[in-house]
Amino acid sequence: MTDLIPITALGTPGGTQPQRARFGALHLAEDDSMGLASFSLRRGQGAPQAVALPGPGGFLGGFAQGQGIGALWMAPDQWLILGTGQALGDFAAQVAVLLPGGCVTDQTDAWAGIEITSDAGPGPIEALMSKLVNIDLAGFGPGRATRTGLEHMSVFVLRRSESQIAVLGMRSAAASLWHALTTAAARLDHARGTA
């Protein structure tokens, strides 16, 4: 194991602990533990068996699947494979073994993940999304995921459950993403306070 100490995407010097914040019912937490890798099907290659790969706009996040592997659809014939707790290993190498024959590229440190949870049901989550991303929430239930724009950034939004989403943003823009999310959450909280 290397003796270099990693920092989180939102890390300040010595910032090895993920950021957290709470605004009313909304909890925001940086998650730097996911291993990520892209997987592309070669021309003419059939769908692999080991991991169920979702269709367009889909996300199979069931961490219950073998080895804690999830997948979201990124592009035609391309998926982002997610591995819980796999950030520090060579996740791409694992994926290459799990899903042989395709093209695999490590993406673990390309993205900063923010998990957002509501402890008051879907309302606060949907109110937050309405302020940030142009997604029709009627078609965005659990198991859906999409890439879209958020305050001039490109992000993946994953609907993990009715009351939880994950936002993956470019690692380099993590601070701006955190600013956008926390500002919107704080304003919603303020509005509820004054309503």
Binding site: P56, W73, M74, P76, T146, R147, T148, S154
Partner: peptide, 10 residues
Amino acid sequence: LWYHEQGDRS
């Protein structure tokens, strides 16, 4: 031609 740059890159 339109490119889904902030989407699926199609």
